[in-house]
């Protein structure tokens, strides 16, 4: 469904990605792991069109989308939960959710009611400013906001970052429902065991290159260690 081919990206003179080849099939859950600065966020920013690329570097259902702007990519059904959550401070919780489905409202499972069923605390807090919530609740809003468009691909950038383990558990508990709704999920994670427990496949990035690509069930601790730190396996 989504494919990157020799995807490169740079910030000015600095090259952040050196030819990433990656695929995501419909309904699949793919984890992307790697140390800080490996290029995970840059990869997601490229896919979503926040960073522009050569058209053919990213294919969505066979169409070249590498050069599309972020709003056009989103309208094709690729939604993003950005790093740091990035709720809109001027919008209430409910408005933050509504705006996620305002431009594209694909058909599917997700509606305001379904988001509130998934994360009941958000219904209670729906009139608060989004930024008045705890970190975990904000993360729920960010996920709900992305789901409101009924995306076929959900990209999540470090949804467990900075959260307490119990909170992370609550958020990950929502993943089976999200996957059951039919969306493919890409999880960028530093929490490797968490990522492996839910993903079908894993890519490991290091310094802008894919150093490991494997099925989650077949991967070994040694292989991850080697890919993560660049030591000979």
């Amino acid at each position: 469904m989504l494919e990157t081919r020799g995807l490169t990206a740079s910030y000015g003179q600095f090259k952040a990605l050196f030819g990433i080849d990656m695929t995501v099939a419909a309904g699949e859950c793919v984890a992307i792991i790697g140390a800080n600065g490996a290029g995970k966020t840059t990869l997601l920013r490229s896919i979503t069109g926040v960073l522009r690329n050569g058209p053919e570097m990213i294919l969505h259902r066979g169409d070249p989308i590498g050069a599309l702007s972020a709003d056009r990519v989103m309208q094709r059904g690729i939604a993003m939960v950005p790093e740091g959550r990035r709720l809109f401070p001027s919008l209430s919780v409910e408005e933050n959710l509504l705006i996620g489905g305002q431009v594209r409202r694909g058909s599917g499972h997700w509606s305001l009611d379904e988001i509130y069923r998934l994360f009941p605390i958000l219904r209670e807090r729906r009139h608060s400013p989004g930024t008045a919530l705890s970190g975990g609740q904000q993360q729920m809003v960010a996920i709900g906001r992305a789901l409101m468009s009924n995306p076929e691909l959900l990209l999540c950038d470090e949804i467990s970052l900075g959260l307490a383990p119990v909170v992370i558990r609550d958020i990950y508990a929502a993943l089976p429902t999200i996957r059951a709704s039919g969306a493919a999920v890409v999880l960028v994670e530093q929490d490797i065991s968490r990522a492996l427990s839910v993903a079908d496949r894993v890519y490991c990035l290091m310094e802008g290159r894919v150093t490991l690509s494997a099925r989650a069930s077949e991967i070994t601790r040694e292989a991850i260690h080697a890919a993560y730190f660049g030591e000979a396996a």
């Binding site: 979503t48 069109g49 926040v50 702007s69 972020a70 709003d71 989103m74 309208q75 939604a79 993003m80 950005p82 990035r86 809109f88 401070p89 001027s90 919008l91 408005e95 509504l98 705006i99 996620g100 305002q102 431009v103 594209r104 906001r145 468009s149």
Partner: peptide, 21 residues
Amino acid sequence: ALGRAFRATSDDAVTASLMGI
């Protein structure tokens, strides 16, 4: 909805574009 888009874009244009705006 338009007003919501105005406020969201004013807050953070990049994230607004991730909402399809």
